[in-house]
Design a protein around this nucleic acid. Structure first.
Lengths: 245, 245
DNA sequence: CTGCATTGGTCTGAGGCCGGACCATTGACG
DNA sequence: CGTCAATGGTCCGGCCTCAGACCAATGCAG
């Protein structure tokens, strides 16, 4: 062997990464903005009360409020007071192909890594999901999410429904870490997908794959679910790699 | 479909997770302690200079120093001043089977999730690694790491060499996110593995699997690498699940 | 032996974040 | 129609974190 004196050489630099990125409220802005863009909080719905949301995000109410102020300044939400009030989502889902390319500037490496990581995480997730005994509620969540994707006519709504389906599939794995991984992956993916126009052919292709994946998961066929999701990821990635030149 | 009024129901609670855990210096303590336990900084070696390490961890030097003070208080490192000085690792690698069970208390769900996530991430990582054209340095890193595992006679050293091999395999994927995922996965895994005694049979079994995985990666055979790693993960998990009752 | 580069140790002022108490507004409900 | 629960808005004291400058110890190079 050659690295005997320094057994850890080369690992340390990679393993010890950043522990704190920017400011807490900036993290909150990003998390919430992502959730809104992905359709976790669709247009017109209300965010949870501040006190509740602050706890969920593990942040003080003051910090959360600063984040919400940021979203408000960006025109993504509007806030009203009093009972029955709250912060409601104004943000219109982004229509693929209409601008959005600005969000990709200088993120080439990060987004390419996103595609690599996705190809590992999402197929793995559906395999896990298929291997579990799903509750009726979980089966319904997945089936409904698929139906919403199929029913969406507007490209913008379709894009959000697609994200929600993938998140729903992650949710029914029952693994918090898989949910988190898929969430971040979908965030980057979303930024790329809204930067290119959708073709009718691609949509139909994608829908067929979604149906196959969900069917396999509900059948409990892990190997098939994984295989279908791998193809789905590969096809999407092929579509997107050209973007990043 | 049934969830039409609230398309996001069920997702929000899972997708919006904590953004900031505890204090920054506590995160640093944990990161560094993990790196030391896993053998990224082996016994007797020195940590990078404070100013450098602070940048790597994305934290101010003051905060990093507080973290190092914690490690020093725990007897894991010793610090000397002046040129040629620095913070050196005192921590002796933990011998599997000797106590260590205390670290598992109340972490049942988290550790079970670790095994699930690992089964997704590590096989995926070796598949990616095998699919890349590895540089000579990368091939050497992996081959050396394997040789160190085989050469280790002491169970404690073997345990660290094992972790380093898995981290090395993650490193040569070239994907920062895969490295991070494998690092956290190995951290939880390590806590479980030091809680059980090692059997000679298991070690030999494990070594054979390591060799097969590395061979497949160096051959560029992604499917085989994945398959071998899946078996490796499954076997380890079977050994560990009994722990968590 | 001297000079000085390297590395840890200390201090300070500014700003972030927390947690909690309290205020203001609104609409649901009796 | 009045009450009051729910919800956002404001403020304060205290701890944490940062960035940078400066001090102290040590040992290598000349």
């Amino acid at each position: 062997m050659s690295g005997e004196q320094e057994p850890g050489t080369g690992l340390a630099a990679v393993v010890v990464g950043a522990v704190r990125s920017r400011h807490a409220f900036e993290d909150c802005v990003e998390r919430l903005a992502t959730a809104i863009r992905l359709g976790v909080y669709p247009h017109g719905t209300a965010l949870p009360p501040e006190r509740e949301l602050a706890v969920a995000l593990g942040v003080s109410r003051a910090t959360l409020r600063e984040a919400i102020a940021g979203l408000r300044a960006a025109g993504m939400v509007a806030t009203t007071r009093g009972r029955g009030g709250g912060t409601v989502v104004l943000h219109e889902p982004a229509t693929p192909g209409e601008g959005g390319r600005a969000r990709l500037r200088g993120r080439r490496d990060e987004l390419l890594d996103d595609l690599v990581f996705r190809r590992v995480v999402e197929p793995g997730a559906v395999q896990v999901a298929a291997g579990r005994t799903l509750s009726p509620a979980e089966r319904t969540l997945v089936a409904d999410s698929l139906a919403e994707v199929a029913a969406a006519t507007d490209p913008a709504e379709h894009r959000q429904a697609d994200s929600r389906l993938h998140l729903a599939l992650a949710t029914v794995t029952g693994s918090p870490r898989l949910v988190e991984a898929v969430t971040t992956v979908q965030s980057g993916l979303h930024d790329m997908l809204v930067a290119i126009p959708v073709l009718r052919v691609n949509l139909e292709h994608s829908s067929a794959q979604h149906a196959a994946i969900v069917a396999a998961v509900l059948d409990g066929d892990g190997a098939r679910a994984r295989r279908e999701m791998e193809r789905h990821c590969d096809d999407t990635a092929a579509l997107l790699r050209g973007l990043l030149d």
